[in-house]
């Protein structure tokens, strides 16, 4: 069957979504790398580059708007486009969380960390993979992957609880470390929110394909 004119336009928007995802994924990893390695320059770059993510969101939103106006998509096409518009918003918010993490890195600029960071980078790794896999599930129409990533949020939540318990334990034992503990808790909280946005993307994927929000894995999907 011949491609419809809207297929070409949709391919362009999908490609832009992938580019935005790659940038956001890198930003999450760099935000934690700069935190772990106390790399202030990298942290400043993340803060400056947040504008790039915002601009990408605006560009894609603009293309979506033109697509709606000129192609007037319906049913599956309409759901796909509405999902993309929601996803770019989620990705932009993830960028904002990374910017906040980078700001904490700069606050620690002239301070030694009270301990080596292990769980927070692990959490960042999980969250960034969730974001990538969530978008991949959408692009490849992979319902099983979308639902698996959605479920994986429980692991991130559990890790967040462990980090919370550990940091509160530190504060109990040594109140002088309260300031850093609270900062790390905020950072972990940002990562937890990033993972939540990844689950939003998974829900949008399921909505785009099935028209509903049933996230339970069934019949192999």
């Amino acid at each position: 069957m011949a491609a419809r004119p809207m297929d070409h336009e949709m391919d362009i928007i999908t490609r832009d979504l992938l580019n935005m995802t790659t940038l956001v994924e890198e930003t999450i990893l760099n935000a934690i790398k700069s935190l772990k390695e106390k790399d202030s320059e990298m942290a400043r770059n993340i803060i400056d580059d947040d504008e790039k993510i915002d601009m990408l969101e605006d560009e894609i939103k603009d293309k979506c708007l033109k697509f709606l106006a000129t192609q007037q998509p319906l049913a599956g096409d309409l759901r796909k486009l509405v999902s993309i518009m929601q996803m770019i918003r989620d990705l932009e918010r993830i960028g904002d969380h990374c910017e906040d993490i980078a700001k904490y890195t700069l606050r620690f600029e002239n301070e030694e960390y009270m301990k080596e960071l292990i769980d927070i980078p692990r959490m960042a790794d999980m969250a960034s993979k969730m974001v990538k896999n969530a978008i991949d599930s959408f692009v490849n129409r992979d319902l099983r992957l979308a639902r698996r990533v959605w479920k994986a949020d429980e692991e991130v939540d559990e890790l967040f609880r462990n980090i919370y318990d550990e940091l509160m334990g530190i504060v109990d034992r040594d109140p002088m470390k309260a300031n850093q503990s609270v900062m790390f808790l905020f950072i972990a909280s940002h990562l937890e929110r990033i993972a939540d946005y990844a689950t939003n993307i998974c829900e949008e994927t399921v909505f785009a394909i099935e028209g509903g929000y049933d996230m339970e894995i069934k019949n192999g999907n």
Partner: peptide, 18 residues
């Protein structure tokens, strides 16, 4: 019908696939 039709044929028609 226009957001989430139950039948695949309906979907194909309204999205211009045939």
């Amino acid at each position: 019908i226009f957001s989430n039709p139950a039948n695949k044929k309906t979907e194909e028609y309204i999205t211009g696939r045939f």
